[in-house]
């Protein structure tokens, strides 16, 4: 069964602690989002897990194999994209992928068929071009393809859609959603919408410390949602919402038909606000103003460890 495990992973550079006693374990299939601001320790964790850096303390295990002791066996069933890697610039895309296939023991006939399949799914650039001549986004897609080439059980991705245009991001996202059914994916990302769409679980990290490791579903339950966007079928002025004044903190017009309502976040208030909005005019949509993970992210990263405790204990 695919697994990813960090046991007290710690990385210090002189007096600076980039990662402080990080521990987690995931098994089976699914996707885990690894979230945090720049410099939080996300890439450091992924580098330690894939053997690109050595931990000061602790260890990383991939499929039960200690990466520090036997990196070849640990990485055997693992595809990685760390730090927007660059294949050899003088190699064509085809050769780049075939080299990875050869390193990973994929028979060449099977590899070529898989490359064709990935070329179609990821809209890969012409593979007879040297990778050094490709744009950043094109190269990134080749790299993502190479991480999927051997159909690994574990996939570790560091900002996988970085440098991709919106259409390319959607293509990669769709592949990840499909892959997570049978594979275990750990991906860092700045894009909360991406993590929301792809991941079943999220880890929040800041200042090298893991603040929260929870399913997206539970985060949604615990997150305190304080803003809703209401879209009416006809133009509405905020003054028309006088009847809900005691329930809300503020109302801002986003457009003639769309209002953002800031309220206490209490669970009883939300249906009541909707009821009174419907009384004012026909409501087309009524939804949280922010994503669940955005709320959690802001509470955690903005509020530091205290925020994490609050979210975890609520």
């Amino acid at each position: 069964m695919p697994s990813i495990e960090a046991q007290g992973l710690t990385k210090r550079y002189g007096g600076f602690t980039a990662l402080d006693d990080a521990s987690f374990k995931f098994e089976g299939s699914g996707a885990i989002g690894y979230l945090g601001p720049n410099g939080a320790g996300k890439t450091t964790t992924l580098k330690l897990l894939t053997g690109l850096a050595r931990p000061t303390a602790g260890r990383g295990l991939l499929n039960g194999v200690d990466i520090g002791r036997d990196p070849k066996r640990a990485l055997w069933d693992v595809g990685t994209v760390i730090e927007s890697p660059e294949p050899y610039p003088w190699q064509t895309g085809q050769r780049t992928l075939e080299m990875v296939a050869a390193f990973r023991g994929v028979p060449m006939r099977e590899a070529r068929a898989k490359i064709e399949e990935l070329a179609s799914e990821l809209d890969l650039p012409p593979l007879d071009k040297k990778t050094g001549a490709l744009s950043k986004g094109q190269r990134q897609r080749v790299v993502i393809a190479s991480s999927l080439l051997s159909d690994p059980g574990v996939i570790i991705l560091d900002e996988p859609t970085s440098g991709l245009d919106p259409a390319e991001r959607i293509a990669v996202r769709n592949i990840l959603v499909k892959l997570k059914r049978e594979h275990l994916i750990l991906m860092s990302s700045h894009l909360l919408s991406e993590v929301t769409e792809v991941c079943d679980r999220a880890i929040f990290i800041n200042h090298g410390k893991i603040l929260l490791n929870e399913t997206v579903e539970n985060i949604a339950k615990r997150a305190v949602d304080t803003q809703v966007d209401v879209e009416f079928a006809v133009p509405i002025h905020p003054d028309q919402l006088g009847s809900i004044a005691e329930l809300v903190r503020s109302v801002v017009a986003l457009s003639p038909t769309k209002l953002r309502i800031d309220y206490s976040g209490h669970s009883d208030a939300r249906p009541e606000i909707l009821k009174r909005c419907v009384a004012v005019g026909p409501v087309l949509s009524y939804a949280s103003a922010t994503l669940v993970l955005e709320d959690a992210y802001l509470q955690l990263i903005g509020g530091g460890v205290a925020g994490a405790n609050h979210l975890a204990e609520d």
């Binding site: 894939t50 053997g51 690109l52 070849k72 730090e83 927007s84 660059e86 390193f103």
Partner: peptide
């Protein structure tokens, strides 16, 4: 010195 290492060294090769 380049990002080639992230590509090559993450392969299951000693």
């Amino acid at each position: 010195g380049t990002k080639t290492g992230y590509y090559v060294l993450a392969q299951p090769v000693k």
